[in-house]
């Protein structure tokens, strides 16, 4: 039978190992940056490594790998609204209100509106 103290002692080893892993991942991130990869690839790689580091901090240091459902519930709501927040840049790009409408000018026509079909 395990006591709480035994469990904590086991966790202490994990904390040090995760700390070491976080250092290694940081070195990898900086090393990859020194190679000067193409921007889209560099962004993807940096965010993947950062997400892995974030997962390690949240699951081990913040004990999210074994929490109560009320905490998971509140975090699920946060994730949903966070996704909405991160989607705002996408909506901004998709929004065409206020931008110039490019109208194709048919060849040989002097006026842009001359080629429009008459109804």
């Amino acid at each position: 039978m395990h006591s709480e103290a035994d469990d904590i002692k086991k966790h202490v080893r994990t904390y040090w190992m995760i700390g070491g892993a976080l250092y290694v991942f940081t070195v990898i991130t900086v090393a990859v940056n020194q190679i000067h990869l193409a921007l889209p690839f560099a962004v993807t790689l940096a965010l993947i490594v950062a997400s892995m580091k974030g997962y390690m901090v949240a699951s081990v240091f913040m004990h999210l790998n074994h929490e109560k459902k009320w905490i998971y519930g509140s975090l699920l709501l946060t994730v949903a609204f966070f996704i909405v927040l991160m989607s705002i840049p996408l909506f901004t790009v998709m929004d065409s209100i206020g931008t110039d409408i490019v109208q194709e000018v048919p060849a040989g026509s002097a006026h842009p509106g001359a080629g429009a079909p008459a109804h």
Binding site: T26, T29, A50, G54, V57, A58, M62
Partner: peptide
């Protein structure tokens, strides 16, 4: 840990 987590994303 949350403050650390924010920096993990701010740095890159």
């Amino acid at each position: 840990h949350f403050v650390d987590l924010v920096w993990i994303f701010l740095f890159p």
